[in-house]
Simulated assay, not measured.
Amino acid sequence: MATLSVPHDIVSEILRRLGVKDLLRFKCISKAWCSLIDDPDFAKLHLSHSLKTGTNLSLVPRGLDGGLLSVELDSLKRARRLKHPLESYGDKFADLLGSCNGLLALMSRRDEISLWNPSTRKSRTFPAAAVEISRGRPRRGFVVYGFGYDPISDDYKLLQMAQYYFSNDDSIKSEVKVYSSSSNCWRRIQDFNFYLKYKLVHGVYANNALHFVVSRMRRSEPLVAAFDLGTEEFCLLELPDCLGTGFSLNVRAMGGCISLTVYYYLGVHVWDVHDTEIWVMKEYGVRESWTKLISVKQSEFIWGFNYVLPLAFSNNADKVLMYVDKNKFMWSGNVGRESRNYLINKEAEKEREMAWKLGKRRC
């Protein structure tokens, strides 16, 4: 019986709509299918389709034991443990330096870095770059990273920024190095002339650049700096021109665009947050394209929140999933208008609210 021959283009169109697990199984069907699925061009088509349709999206939170989990965004109920390649070094904990196109950049406590694809389980492990700042005796310092993809050179890059404070808080030294996946080596580039505001927050990848919250002076107003992965140069990103006063910033990536979270606070304590705004830059680099998505206010139901962090859009982009304060997740609906907030773990929040009210009465 004659077999039906399906054109190569049609096979490619069908396969790129499948999940990664199915593709890995279908590599065994024939040499032609295996060659097609392993083709880098097919991988780019499959990735592009997944990003457009919002399929195969997952969150990677940290478990109670310090390990990494994968949680499907559509349900937030199905989670699986990720056994990353750095566990072979005897350390379950791994710092997530960044993610891009399904790849994770991880770092162990022994300063070993791994670029890992959880779907294919392929990885590359290499040591972090040595910090060469040695002159003087710094009071304190820290190192942050950023991971992203440069489509011009077709290269994945990892940014390492070391910053040290000396006797005067306004006196710093910085050192910037870039790891290239194509050359598999580190190299030193221009220094960074701004103050990093957060020592535990790595760069956020969006629009072919890595973004950090910075300031010109140690205690001056917050700004957003962008590191272009193509030119390997830093620049400042213009903020919305209608922000108020007394706020701090957080930068995220939402739907492929850069997102800004603005925390307004009262009094002298920066953790007394009473209002949070989430902005998205619809056209990258254009200040006028900043659009306010949501304004979340402190309420009697969501009492005493000090920290709100947007994570992702829903599949139809009408809601935003947010991390609220201590291990709570919330969908905020009516994007672009007055927000309606839905706590996912409502029972836990009610118990916490009652405990807080009882404690307040006893005082």
Rank of each mutant, 00 (worst) to 15 (best):
Y195I: 15
Y195W: 12
L196D: 10
K197A: 12
Y198T: 06
Y198H: 13
Y198V: 08
L200Y: 14
L200C: 10
V201W: 08
V201L: 12
V201N: 08
H202V: 01
G203S: 05
V204D: 00
A206I: 09
N207Q: 15
N207K: 15
N208H: 15
L210F: 07
H211N: 09
F212T: 03
F212Q: 05
F212N: 05
F212K: 04
S215D: 09
R218P: 00
E221G: 07
E221A: 13
E221N: 10
L223A: 04
L223V: 03
A225V: 09
A225W: 00
A226P: 03
A226G: 04
D228T: 10
D228Q: 08
L229W: 12
L229I: 00
G230H: 14
T231K: 13
E232A: 08
F234S: 03
C235E: 12
L236D: 09
L236F: 07
L236P: 04
L237S: 04
L237A: 07
E238R: 02
P240M: 11
G244I: 07
G244L: 10
T245E: 12
T245F: 09
G246K: 12
G246R: 13
G246N: 12
S248C: 07
N250C: 09
V251T: 14
V251H: 03
R252N: 11
M254N: 02
M254V: 04
G255Q: 06
G256H: 08
G256L: 09
I258Q: 00
I258V: 15
I258M: 09
S259G: 15
S259L: 05
L260F: 00
T261R: 05
Y264P: 04
Y265P: 06
L266H: 11
G267T: 10
V268M: 12
H269M: 09
H269C: 11
V270H: 13
V270S: 15
D272S: 12
D272P: 01
V273N: 03
D275K: 13
T276P: 02
E277D: 14
E277C: 09
E277G: 08
W279H: 01
V280Q: 01
K282Q: 12
K282P: 00
K282M: 07
Y284V: 07
Y284T: 06
V286W: 01
T291W: 07
L293A: 05
L293Y: 14
L293W: 06
I294G: 01
I294P: 01
S295D: 07
V296W: 01
K297N: 11
Q298P: 01
Q298N: 09
Q298A: 10
S299M: 05
F301P: 01
F301L: 14
F301V: 15
F301D: 14
W303L: 12
F305P: 01
N306Q: 13
N306R: 15
Y307G: 01
V308H: 02
L309R: 11
L311G: 05
L311T: 06
A312F: 06
F313W: 10
S314T: 14
S314K: 11
S314I: 04
N315W: 02
N316R: 12
N316I: 04
A317Y: 12
D318M: 05
D318C: 10
K319W: 03
K319H: 07
L321Q: 04
M322G: 02
Y323N: 14
Y323I: 00
V324M: 14
D325C: 07
